[in-house]
Design a protein around this nucleic acid. Structure first.
Lengths: 118, 118
DNA sequence: CTTGAAGCTCACATCCGTGTGAGGTTTTAC
DNA sequence: GTAAAACCTCACACGGATGTGAGCTTCAAG
């Protein structure tokens, strides 16, 4: 599959896909003319990359972590700790976001209730 | 309370506090010499600002939304919609983060289980 | 007074994924 | 063989909160 197809399939821009490759997150082979050809699992991989980016992991961290998903032999204790750290961070972030959501929901509630007198 | 005290109380750097003021998120009076004096509720206000920033609202949006928390008369339908939109966005973000957390947790699990043979 | 800590303004730097545009090449379809 | 669509590589720009440093002023304590 070519870059346009992968872009359409994932919602990531071609620019982003090239960036992922540049950062070592995504592999491609090339046609004789130099255009990128992506293997079958690329869609899932890009989806995963997007998830991790959205979770606040930067590309370097993702590059460290990603290989282990496909290759269990690459798992080191150091990486396990790293991963656990990221998990904790994301969990804390979710906690914090939940509280903030409650604040926003409370405000929306007030909007819904108070102007009922109007 | 002066800027150093507020910074210590909230964890926000003095730089950030000045920035919040510049963006209209935080008010202060000044000493005759020009130094900032913050009123009593400033700590809570800064904490709220930090929450909203962490939730992905930018300073302009926060500036729109913040006044309504203290003053119900400022609530307009337009702002209600705006607020609801932000709430939806944050909720979606939390959903997405939950999925990502599950992915990370799954990875950590694999680390925990697989190397048990070692 | 004097001195050191704390504050002030201004302005440039950083992060980092993504947008964008120029200028050129490859691929695909007719 | 030709035209159009897709792709290529630079390389610069951005957003937006925060860091940082220079140069100066104010405040609090001795």
């Amino acid at each position: 599959m070519r870059i346009g197809d992968l872009s359409a399939a994932t919602g990531a821009s071609a620019r982003s896909l090239r960036y992922y490759e540049e950062q070592g997150l995504l592999a491609s082979t090339r046609t004789p003319g130099g255009q990128r050809i992506y293997p079958a699992g690329a869609v899932e991989r890009v989806t995963l990359i997007q998830s991790l980016l959205a979770a606040g992991l930067n590309s370097v961290t993702i590059a460290d972590v990603l290989p282990c998903i496909s290759d269990a032999t690459l798992r080191t204790p150091w990486l396990a700790g790293r991963l656990r750290g990221e998990l904790d961070r994301v969990s804390a972030q979710i906690e914090s976001l939940n509280r903030t959501r409650d604040i926003l929901a409370g405000l929306v509630d007030q909007y819904t209730v108070t102007p009922a007198s109007a």
